[in-house]
Structure formats: structure tokens, C-alpha cells
Design a protein around this nucleic acid. Sequence first.
DNA 1: CACTTATACGGTACTCAGTACCAGACGGTA
DNA 2: TACCGTCTGGTACTGAGTACCGTATAAGTG
Lengths: 223, 223
Amino acid sequence: MPAKPARQRLTEAAFELFEERGYDQTTVDDITERAGVGRTTFFRAFRSKEEVIFPDHEVLLGSIESRLDGADPRTALVAVTEAARLVLRHYVAEGELALARYRLTRSVPALRAREIAGTQQYQRLFREFVHRWLGGGPDTALRAELLAAAVVTAHNHVLRRWLRGQAPDPETEFDAAMADTVALFAAREDEPGTTVVAFRTGKDLSAVLPGLRRLLGDEGALG
Amino acid sequence: MPAKPARQRLTEAAFELFEERGYDQTTVDDITERAGVGRTTFFRAFRSKEEVIFPDHEVLLGSIESRLDGADPRTALVAVTEAARLVLRHYVAEGELALARYRLTRSVPALRAREIAGTQQYQRLFREFVHRWLGGGPDTALRAELLAAAVVTAHNHVLRRWLRGQAPDPETEFDAAMADTVALFAAREDEPGTTVVAFRTGKDLSAVLPGLRRLLGDEGALG
DNA sequence: CACTTATACGGTACTCAGTACCAGACGGTA
DNA sequence: TACCGTCTGGTACTGAGTACCGTATAAGTG
């Protein structure tokens, strides 16, 4: 009975081998052999060989969903950006693992497709949440979709910059990118008013928000 | 020597069988048997079983690229929307084939992932084009990415509505959606001016544009 | 303690996608 | 006739993923 659980040893062995020989040159048998477990155990822990690369995707999806579920409708936009920040933090916390995954997804088309499909799931959660927030009518469907896509795009932009080593402080860049992105939508909310919203605070956005709202007389377009 | 080329007979046989038994329940052998060709011929015509569903994806990518390549920089935004319109027209022209593909991609996760990866390729072309148009600097990278994502999102929104039978006149809806989407970006171009650009013409956008530009004194934010 | 049950693991055998390689059929050309 | 490029079919192989079975250990129950 080994100390580490099988699932963890499998991911470690898999990433090692992918790094050494490449993804296609590594078989599932190779992975299970190095991990010291049976082949059946692999497919019990992961639905497919590709899934080893994204071990806790489901968990991440779940935490996003719960973050959005417990959101005050008055702070809907903040909730979405905070949920996106959750994803960013997760990858940054992974460190070298995230970098290894990035190298793999860039070189193996199948993995790239898989990752894109994964981000689309985040986007779906965002879209449904924003659409509910906008009332759920058919006239707001496109707007919700655009906003969700924009948030995910901005997030991915910053994340990729960090993965490439171009963003030493990703969270600050994230704040700036999100401010730009959300402002895109807030600017047209009331056409002649041109209330350009740009918040660039560090972390506790929900703490700053009440003060901002008081300042603007409770008509600010930042939900 | 049969009348129809092997490739076409394979796609027809494949879509028939997918419709009858489902994607996973259909083997490549089933397809080649119905098409009356050898198994080797299948993998010469298509790189994989999934690729039968998207027979002319490469062609479409090529026509988009050439549409963008021969674009006047002064009409960059129009070029992007027109390139997106190319995709829409392609699917609409496919008719029942596009509907069958939609049914498949909705029910088979692997195909859905594949399709999403495909749209991401369009988005990449758009992003690179817009980025070049904006000067290619690092400060405009996010903006280009957001714009490309927005155009693709708006296109997909209308396309999916048509695929669901909710858009009897997709091109008109496309015009409206694109106008909304592009306006999102044009509105912030010059902050105090609030020149809200919304063109909702039928088809010949490039024909209307010179007049519009004259009207605005050649400072309009619509590239 | 003995007994049952659940759970995790390993092994075997199978299906099927995808690849590599070889061999024949066909049309055009000298 | 002989040569050549191209399209085609057949055979054999690798490897992912599934189904099923047997077993060991741990946890609960009398």
C-alpha cells in the first residue's frame, strides 16, 4: 500500500514521461508502469489519456459555479470577474505544472482542442449567469454571450501572458484587463452619460464597491 | 469506376449511418462498406473519423484568409465582418447537411470539442488581422483579441439561432448583431465624442461606406 | 471474533481508430 | 511494349478505451 494515492502518482508519472518523450510517444502502459499500478487503475482515475493533463478541471468548474450561485445580483459583474480570477489563481498556484501543460497543449493539437473545449465550459457558466442577470429575455441573449466571451478572452489573454513569462504580476494585469473589458460594455449602457467605469483596485473589489456606489448615486452601470 | 468520387460517397454514407445509428455506434468499416470502398481509401480522404463531419473546413479557412489578405486597411472592420458573413453563408448554403452536423455536435462531446477548436481557428485569423490593423503593438493585443472573439461570438450566435430554426433570415440578423457588436468597440474609441456607429444595411456595406465617411468628415471610428 | 459488504486494485480479452507497408489496376507517354 | 505516377484495396500492427472477472483489504455488524 503506497503512501501517495494512485491518482496523484499517475499524474506525476504522466507529466514526467510526456516531458521526456512527448505525448504521442508515451503510452498508457508506460505511465502505469512508472506509477507502479495496473492499467485498469488508470482508466478508473481518468476517463481518457487526455484527461491526465487536466486533472482538476471538474473541481474548478464546480468552484466557479458555487461562486456564481452565491452571488448578489447587485454585484453580478463583480461576481463574474471574481470567478474568472478564481481560475487565474488556480493556474498560477499550480506553477510548474501549469507551465508543463502549456507546453503540451501548444504542441499537441488534440490537447489544444481539449483545453479550448474546457474554457468553453467556463464561458457557458458565465453566459448563463449573465443572461439570468439581464433578465433572461431573447433580446439580451447576444449581449450575455458577448460579455461572457469577453471576460473569458481577457482572462485567457492574461493567463497566456503569464504562461509565456511575460506577466510577472498576473493579478494586477488581470485587474487592468478586466476593467478595460467591462468598461466596453458599461460605456454603452447609458448612451449620453458616458460613465466610464474603471476599477483597478488590488483584491477586495466587493469591499470597495459600496463606497463607489454611494459616490455615483447608485446609478453606476457596474452591477 | 463509380460516377461519384470516393470522398463524396464516403461523406454521404457517413452522415446516413450517423443519423441511423449514432456516431459512436458507427464504425469506419460500416462507412466504407456502405460507400463501397476500401478502408484505406477512407483514411486517405479524411485524416480521422471526426473529420468526415467537417469536410470542407480547410477550404473555408482558406477563403477567409484570402478575403482578409485582399482587404483595404481603411475597411478593416468591414473586412472582418464580411469574412464572418462568408462562414455564415457557407453553412446556410449547406442546408440539411449543416443541420445534421449540428445534431451530431450537440450529442457527441468529442465532435463538439472538434467544432469549437475549428471556430477558434477562424478567431485566430481574425485576431491576427485586427492586430495587424491596430499596429501590432503589445498594447493593442488584448483589444484585437476581444474584437475577434466578439465577432466570432456574434456570428455563432446568429448561426446557432438559424440551426435551431429560430432565424428565418439569418443574414439580416447577422447585420444587426454585427452592428451591435462593432458598436461596442467603436463607442469607446473617442471617449467624449460618443459617436455611436450603427450600420444596419442589407448587403453591400462596402458600397455604403464611402458615403458614410463623407458624412462624418472622415473621422468615423469604423475602420 | 466470525461474517458480510463495500471499495479499490490487477489481469485478461475484446473492439475499434489510426498507421505502415505492400500489391494490383489504370491512364498516359515514349 | 515498357515505364511511370496515381488511385485503390488488402494485411498486419500499435494503442486507446471498455467489459468482465477475481481478489485483497478495510470497515461495519452480529
